[in-house]
């Protein structure tokens, strides 16, 4: 509503924003602050609002824990492989759906609905299948499942991006003798780079930060970072500082990347991206 606000009204707005920001960002601040406190300071009375002395011991602890290193590796591997699999399956399919309307609106509806199905309802059959086929505690199992649960959203978003590219640009390359795959690789992908970035964020939201499937389907060997963090809690002594440091590490890449592509977030959101 483009209407000049009076000075007092504006001041009121600023005051209100301040309250909002404090309420909404305090938990995030607390997580970050706790990651820089010693264990003894975590539950001090009164609370220690600003860590002092500022300690890195939690991060050092974290990186000297072999289990954490192993699960970090697993998280990287699983998220990376999921991204690759989604790209390999999703980009050609989205291209075909956008350009040639293969599958038509029926397939679009299937894809849309598939994205909305709750993964958590599938935990029991997936657990039974994984055990039955000897796929329990394997990184590959998570990759297949994350690919399945992210592919519909990726295709949905990519169809939207690819549809914005005019046919003529591709026709020129095709006349020069390029193959379809060549056109996708050399012409289409460079043109939708910003779109690809936001698809990537959503894929990471459901692989790098996934907890429910990972906690059910992995054990010592293939645990990802979220599951290892859960093992910190079930111990007798909860190492909150270390847990906070791990939380900051898991959240940071997504928060930064998400803020960078924020204008595309709505699109992924309304087409059913959960977290």
């Amino acid at each position: 509503m483009y209407q000049r606000l009076s000075r007092s009204n504006r001041l009121l707005s600023y005051a209100m924003w301040l309250v909002l920001l404090v309420v909404f960002l305090f938990p995030v601040y607390w997580l970050v602050a706790s990651s820089f406190k010693t264990e003894g300071q975590q539950f001090a009375i009164p609370p220690i609002w600003v860590p002092s002395p500022f300690t890195l011991e939690n991060y050092i602890d974290l990186f000297s824990d072999a289990k954490v290193i192993n699960s970090l590796k697993n998280s990287f591997l699983v998220a990376g492989m999921t991204l690759a699999a989604v790209a390999l399956l999703g980009i050609p399919a989205a291209y075909s759906m956008a350009r040639f309307r293969v599958g038509g609106s029926k397939m679009m509806l299937v894809i849309f609905t598939a994205r909305l199905l709750p993964p958590v309802a599938y935990i029991i059959p997936l657990f039974a299948i994984a055990r039955g086929l000897g796929l329990y505690d394997k990184q590959g199992t998570l990759v297949v499942l994350y690919t399945f649960f992210s592919l519909p959203l990726a295709i949905w978003m990519l169809v939207g991006f690819i549809a914005t590219i005019p046919d003529e640009i591709e026709d020129a390359a095709l006349i020069d003798g390029a193959s379809r795959l060549g056109v996708i690789w050399h012409v289409v992908l460079p043109l939708i780079r910003p779109g690809l970035a936001s698809v990537t964020i959503f894929m990471l939201l459901s692989s790098w930060n996934e907890f429910a499937l990972a906690v059910t389907l992995t054990a010592r060997h293939s645990r990802t970072l979220p599951v290892t963090m859960y093992t910190f809690v079930t111990n007798q002594n909860i190492a909150w500082g270390k847990l906070a440091a791990a939380g900051v590490l898991s959240a940071l890449p997504i928060v930064i990347a998400g803020l960078l592509v924020q204008k595309h977030l709505v699109m992924g959101l309304v087409s059913g991206s959960g977290k």
């Binding site: 924003w17 909404f24 960002l25 975590q42 930060n209 963090m229 898991s250 959240a251 928060v255």
Partner: peptide, 25 residues
């Protein structure tokens, strides 16, 4: 302000879960 308010949404639920459990001790 709108950008900063997005941050809670970008923090994965499992991290928020740990964090709130900690804060609500």
């Amino acid at each position: 302000v709108r950008t900063l308010l997005l941050i809670p949404w970008l923090v994965a639920p499992f991290i928020s879960g740990f964090n709130f459990r900690f804060m609500m001790a």
